[in-house]
Amino acid sequence: MSALDSPWIEVCPIDSIPLRGCRVVRTRHMQIALFRTASDEVFALDNRCPHKNGPLSEGIVHDRKVTCPLHNWVISLESGEATGADKGSTRSFPVRLDKGRVYLEASVATAP
């Protein structure tokens, strides 16, 4: 199933996420971190740093990246991959933006 024809679920208005900031979405099995960049893009990652599970939602957001608060790994918001010389990746999820509202794929609510 491609991202477009899957059922989407509305999560929140984009304005409830701070600019260059993040809010958390709770799902059954994990926390998803919803990031909003300076240019109003939204990205979703599993809220666990590939290094030692640091909460990425608490990091500083810059460009399309976030710096983990625990040991400063820099994670790409687009791919979930660590950047620079560090290696590792965290799951990323498709996000849709429509009329100022943020949508995630419905399946994430129960995804393991």
Binding site: I9, C12, R23, V25, R26, R28, L34, A109
Partner: peptide, 17 residues
């Protein structure tokens, strides 16, 4: 206040489906 609460809670979603 936004710092201290999740923006959405989908944990009950399964029951609703």
């Amino acid at each position: 206040a936004h710092e201290f609460t999740p923006v959405a809670d989908l944990t009950l979603r399964e029951a609703a489906e």
